[in-house]
């Protein structure tokens, strides 16, 4: 249960950072928090009480197969790598934006307003 609270809370804090801040790097930090929170929730869906990690290393585990759900772990493994790719690309765009505008603050950009 604490895992659901941790994941959901991290997601909400990330959303709050994304809504409140106008600094581009902090907005990307908030995006990373949201992603990590969702990962924790997905892993917690696959947890089964009293079972061990899905690595069949001993004879007993091979016979009984008392392991937790391996499918969410495989999905999250993909999601983490994609997440770092997204973060890297977003940060390179931020550097490019800074080279053009000279500021990281989004509210100083008047051309986006109408």
């Amino acid at each position: 249960m604490i895992y659901y609270i941790a994941g959901g809370g991290l997601f909400l804090i990330g959303l709050y950072i994304l809504l409140v801040n106008r600094n581009l790097i902090k907005m990307i930090i908030g995006l990373g928090f949201m992603e990590t929170g969702v990962n924790i929730i997905i892993i917690a869906f696959g947890y089964v009480k009293g079972k061990t990690a899905p690595i069949l290393s001993t004879k007993e585990l091979i016979n009984n197969r008392q392991v937790v759900d391996p499918l969410p772990q495989a999905l999250v493994l993909t999601a983490i790598v994609i997440g770092v790719a997204v973060t890297a690309l977003a940060l390179s765009m931020v550097v490019s934006y800074y080279k053009k505008r000279g500021s990281l603050n989004l509210s100083k950009n008047k051309e986006l307003k109408w």
């Binding site: 991290l10 990962n39 924790i40 937790v68 493994l77």
Partner: peptide, 17 residues
């Protein structure tokens, strides 16, 4: 923050993640 989530993943029996 991310380092603490590593501990959470480990207690959720997901050493790969």
């Amino acid at each position: 923050v991310d380092l603490i989530t590593v501990v959470l993943f480990f207690f959720l029996q997901a050493p790969d993640v």
